[in-house]
């Protein structure tokens, strides 16, 4: 056949075929997506500091381990209240002359997803300590330490922000937070999933476990609320208060023997979980975010956490029911 002995025709045919498929599968979908999607109302562009932080996030290659996409799968529920949609990424454009757009969706989840980290973990102190050395706050973490975002000084200036390192000897060198570290934390705090405007259908999470569950299939192992307080504590609380409940001295208070936890009336404890707390800043403790509200915890889940805290690490206090918690939460609104 002529095609197989004429190199011009053969290579043009192959190239043409490939170009046509490329148009169909990459260029046209990308262009149409670009034209048809608009940003969500209520979203705002990153400010200067956050932009700087995003540049650091890109430069350090954080995307190698952290995704920024909530898939429409039941197991991604932890990472956001709804699946990500095209509009979430619509505002992102080319970074600068040298660098491409960065949606940072990622393709590997060695570490947690960060789509909603601004809501899930808004505490600045936690982020700074975690960046300085992740194993200070999460002992089993394999994340690299970003020590070079901090400056070690003999004496700190009054305007310097000094990092309180647990276990560091008094009078030693001061660890001062650099501008870049603040920028990176500002970027992380800006990562929040927006609510969809009213009237727009929220995409559902697929492959839900509950859908296939046989009724009456023995939740006997679980505690009375039907939720595993141990696991919920690990997911929502232990990054600051630690798995042993003792917190990190000088940064996050201990729950072991805490007056609030041992109080038979759960009002204060539930309120702090739902609304956050800033009462012990004078002692050097950071502000606690409103974990329960941010992570959309159900009253049953809050009750499971409260009961876990009340019965662990030597704590022995009155257990609460989901109804009590529900009543307190509704009184808070």
């Amino acid at each position: 056949m002529d095609l197989y002995s004429n190199h011009k025709r053969l290579y043009l045919a192959a190239l043409g075929f490939f170009l046509a498929l490329t148009l169909f599968v990459a260029i046209i979908p990308a262009l149409s997506n670009q034209q048809t999607t608009a940003v969500l109302p209520g979203s705002r562009p990153l400010n200067a500091l956050e932009k700087e932080g995003k540049a650091i996030f890109i430069a350090e290659g954080c995307v190698a381990c952290h995704t920024q996409q909530v898939r429409n799968l039941d197991m991604d529920k932890n990472w956001g209240s709804r699946p990500s949609i095209a509009a979430d990424y619509a505002g992102m454009t080319r970074t600068d002359v040298w660098r491409n757009t960065a949606t940072l969706m990622g393709s590997e989840r060695t570490g947690p997803d960060l789509t909603n980290i601004g809501n899930r973990q808004p505490a600045e102190d936690w982020h700074l300590l975690h960046l300085y050395n992740p194993r200070l706050v999460v002992s089993t973490s394999v994340m690299p330490s970003y020590e070079w975002l901090f400056i070690s000084k003999e004496y700190a200036f009054p305007e310097d922000r000094v990092l309180n390192i647990p276990g560091a000897e008094k009078g030693g060198r001061k660890i001062v937070v650099s501008h870049q570290a603040m920028a990176l934390v500002a970027y992380l705090q800006s990562l929040k999933q927006l609510k969809l405007p009213d009237g727009r259908t929220v995409p559902v999470f697929l492959y839900s476990k509950d859908a296939g569950k046989v009724s009456g299939a023995a939740p006997a192992l679980k505690k009375d609320t039907g939720y595993d307080g141990d696991a919920l504590y690990a997911s929502n609380c232990s990054s600051c208060h630690q798995p042993n409940g003792q917190g990190i001295p000088g940064a996050f208070p201990s729950l072991k023997g805490s007056k609030i936890v041992l109080d038979p009336d759960p009002l204060v404890q539930v309120t702090i979980i739902m609304k956050g707390y800033d009462g012990r800043a004078a002692e050097g403790y950071g502000a606690m975010p409103a974990v329960g509200t941010n992570n959309n915890l159900k009253p049953e889940e809050v009750a499971a956490i409260v009961n876990h805290e009340r019965s662990s690490w030597g704590n022995q206090s009155k257990q609460v029911t989901a109804e009590e918690v529900k009543k307190i939460i509704s009184s808070l609104k």
Partner: peptide
Amino acid sequence: MFVTVIALVGYLPQWQNGLGETIVQ
């Protein structure tokens, strides 16, 4: 030939806004 096309599609900025970047990626 194809790798040339692929590099051009991957690096030309015209279709890289928002989710376009991911589709191209």
